[in-house]
Design a protein around this nucleic acid. Structure first.
Lengths: 100, 100
DNA sequence: AATGTATATCGACTTTTCCCGATATACCAA
DNA sequence: TTGGTATATCGGGAAAAGTCGATATACATT
């Protein structure tokens, strides 16, 4: 993954918020249907509701975050659940600590 | 400093390169006039030469990095020397490790 | 098969970023 | 004070990102 694309993914207030929300899904999505979102994540609709932007925008934002390896997606039925990508975030941390 | 602005500053190939060059100025700017650039940094002209973009572009890029607290500037005579901002980079690392 | 719900993709418009050349400013040297 | 060098700022045109509504796709239910 191109480093620039990682930072581009993070240079948007809403996308940064999404990532921070996904760090603590239970606190940030208390109304989420009780699937095991600590493991599979939060569905697009809940994120959209919280973000207050259009469905299409949030869907695109999530795929930008996914392309940057910052979140990962799991499709279950008609829902797509997104959660933090731990490895991608650790990789980012390493980039900052060793290359910049 | 707004977090988004920090990531925006980093979402450009040239600006990322500048930051990585400034991590090891002695290796990356061997032709630099022997001022103590480990301490005060590298002047704009040398960075511009290495980046291969126009003077105005590099000057602007450096001020974007400075506004994001990623580099700091020292004016000496007609030169402005830029170096890494250690604190700003540590702060960024902390943001990623604790908030994302 | 028909309908309903969740998400993804498309087309368009607006705002922001990229990057330049030209000009301004600051400093130095003769 | 005149001219030279280094950097900063300004104005602009092209490209990319932000964001939407409309539409497509995928799946579930009847």
């Amino acid at each position: 993954m191109d480093q620039v694309e990682i930072f581009k993914a993070l240079s948007n207030k809403t996308r940064l918020q999404i990532l921070s929300w996904l760090k603590a899904p239970a606190e940030n999505f208390p109304d989420h249907t009780p699937v095991d979102f600590e493991n599979i994540g939060v569905c697009v609709g809940q994120i959209q509701l919280k973000a207050g932007l259009s469905q299409s925008t949030i869907s695109e934002y999530l795929s930008i975050l996914q392309r940057a390896d910052l979140v990962c997606a799991t499709r279950v039925g008609q829902w797509t659940y997104y959660k933090r990508n731990k490895e991608g975030l650790e990789n980012l941390s390493k980039i900052i600590n060793t290359e910049l």
